[in-house]
């Protein structure tokens, strides 16, 4: 979450959160229509550039973030590469059957997962949740009772984590720490979440009563402490994608790296 890292703020942080969310959701749908591997790779590079250059993170941290992405790429791609349909056999070993078609399709899916991960993390790193919900209320007319509930719930996360620690210490003190054997693991997986859940529900109930008393559920027109607007930064954001996706399209179709036009079988 943004609050966990202190980073340099730049234009990406100033883009209206609702607008940013709508844009990347549309990009998600757009990616589902890409069946050309060359275009998919170029598209991913365009998103990666945004992530590396404009999230305001240090290079060290960016490399740290990229590490699990490689794992995602591999694990998403592998089952399609090994077990996908195809005709031109490259390699066969037992159940594993790698074909040229399945190889390219696997890589395509890998890049897809990578581009979704990059878009999501770019959003999470450059958006403060509080401003997101203020913007959802003001630009997209989300009812305040939902938005304030979300904000309250997000504030409760650190308390939940603290409580989790407390429960673990309490179990340790009582000598219930053993995690050997399947039976114990099962017991553990029920005995920790239940007190966590019940305490959270009690706390949420108390907070809700207080919020109702303060008329957070009223539908009368509210005023807002943070005023969210559409600004020129939103147009920069939009133009970035139009420009780079256009460029990606141009490169992919004029100078293709791989002679594959459609990865579908």
């Amino acid at each position: 979450m943004h609050t966990a890292f202190h980073s340099k703020e730049n234009w990406l942080h100033k883009v209206n959160p609702s607008f940013k969310l709508i844009c990347i959701t549309l990009l998600f749908l757009f990616v589902l229509t890409i069946h050309n591997l060359n275009f998919m790779i170029m598209f991913t590079i365009a998103i990666a550039l945004l992530f590396i250059l404009f999230t305001g993170q240090s290079l060290k941290r960016i490399l740290l973030f990229l590490l699990p992405f490689m794992l995602i790429f591999l694990s998403t791609a592998l089952s399609m590469i090994f077990f996908g349909k195809g005709e031109t056999t490259l390699f066969k070993w037992g159940l594993v059957h790698v074909t040229e078609e399945s190889l390219f399709r696997g890589i395509h899916i890998g890049f897809r997962a990578l581009s979704f991960a990059l878009m999501g993390l770019t959003f999470a790193l450059t958006t403060r949740p509080v401003l997101l919900f203020y913007s959802l209320m003001q630009q997209l007319k989300l009812p305040p009772k939902y938005a304030y509930s979300f904000m309250a719930a997000i504030r409760l996360i650190p308390i939940m984590i603290e409580e989790f620690q407390t429960i673990r210490y309490a179990r340790k003190v009582r000598g219930l720490q053993s995690t050997k054997g399947m039976n114990n693991i099962l017991k553990l997986s029920i005995s920790i979440p239940i007190p966590l859940l019940s305490q959270s529900i009690r706390r949420a109930f108390r907070i809700a009563v207080a919020m109702e008393a303060k008329r957070f559920d009223s539908s009368v027109k509210r005023t807002f402490y943070y005023k969210m607007r559409i600004s020129p930064y939103d147009f920069i954001f939009l133009f970035y994608f139009i420009l780079l996706i256009g460029l990606a399209y141009f490169i992919a179709f004029n100078h293709p790296l791989i002679p594959v036009t459609d990865v579908r079988y």
Binding site: S149, A153, L156, I161, S200, F205, I207, A208, M211, D217
Partner: peptide, 19 residues
């Protein structure tokens, strides 16, 4: 839904979100 329902649902779900 009342505010209580909404808040409890969201708090429980954010807990699941962490999971």
């Amino acid at each position: 839904l009342k505010l209580t329902d909404i808040l409890v649902t969201i708090v429980v779900s954010i807990g699941f979100g962490i999971l």
